[in-house]
């Protein structure tokens, strides 16, 4: 990546371009390759202080029949960006579980491009985000299905919780499909904590702040589904500390 991105670049639509410019050029993307038939699990946690600028780029290849499980907790930096460019070959599988926590005036985002290059590959992306104050949080998920990508099964789910009026959540799925037999599902919702659930917890003796924290954690932990118990517990513990 050499040219400084502009607002016209889809993948930088809601980014903090000034912050990005101040650290440009960023290092080349980290390459991750999962060999045929293998499985790999990765976890990335952004917890830099609120004045840092953090940009992580990954160029990922998942070979035929291989699988990658990537979990991201993006809760750091004034500008914190994680961008994944994932290429899936025949029968490969990619699971993304992403959590974005925004507060103050921060801008944090997860940007993915998933290329279904071979037939029968599966991608599952679940991103949950909570934003307070005047934070901007963004999930941009592009799915590109090549002509060879028949029987692609791609799903994206994004849900955001806004804690304050000034907070923003952006989501924009983008599909680019050149095969005719594909399944691409996406859903996006933005809302607030369920007042009925809050009252229910309070009526059982849980103070409001604890009730809100419990419901927020429950909401975000959708992104940890499918993990083995100990991996999940470890991420939940980090999440609790970061909230």
């Amino acid at each position: 990546m050499s040219a400084l991105p502009t607002r016209r670049d889809e993948a930088w639509r809601y980014s903090d371009l000034a912050a990005a410019a101040s650290v440009w050029p960023v290092p080349a993307a980290e390459t991750v390759t999962v060999a045929a038939g293998e499985s790999l699990a990765r976890t990335l946690i952004l917890d830099a202080p609120d004045d840092a600028i953090v940009i992580h780029d990954y160029a990922i290849t998942v070979a035929a029949g291989a699988s990658l499980d990537f979990r991201i907790l993006n809760a750091g930096g004034r500008y914190g960006r994680v961008a994944l460019d994932v290429t899936l070959h025949a029968g490969a599988r990619f699971d993304l579980g992403g959590v974005i926590i925004g507060r103050g005036a921060t801008n944090r985002e997860i940007v993915t491009t998933v290329r279904h290059a071979g037939p029968g590959a599966v991608s599952r992306q679940v991103v949950r985000c909570v934003a307070g104050d005047t934070a901007t949080t963004t999930y941009l998920g592009k799915v590109a299905v090549a002509r060879e990508g028949q029987q692609t099964d791609a799903a994206q789910s994004f849900k955001a919780l806004l804690l304050d009026r000034g907070a923003t959540a952006n989501a924009k799925p983008e599909l680019e499909i050149f095969a005719d037999d594909v399944k691409c599902a996406h859903g996006a919702t933005v809302g607030e904590l369920d007042a009925n659930a809050l009252f229910y917890l309070e009526s059982r003796g849980v103070p409001p702040a604890a009730a809100r924290a419990l419901l927020t954690r429950a909401f975000l932990s959708d992104a940890f589904e499918g993990l083995a118990d100990d991996a999940r517990d470890a991420l939940e513990a980090r999440l609790e500390a970061l909230l």
């Binding site: 369920d194 059982r204 003796g205 429950a218």
Partner: peptide
Amino acid sequence: YPVEIPGVSNLNFLRTALNAQ
């Protein structure tokens, strides 16, 4: 009309409530 709370187990709910009280 009891409320549904996705993602919070009954056990967690009960224990949190009991100990909060």
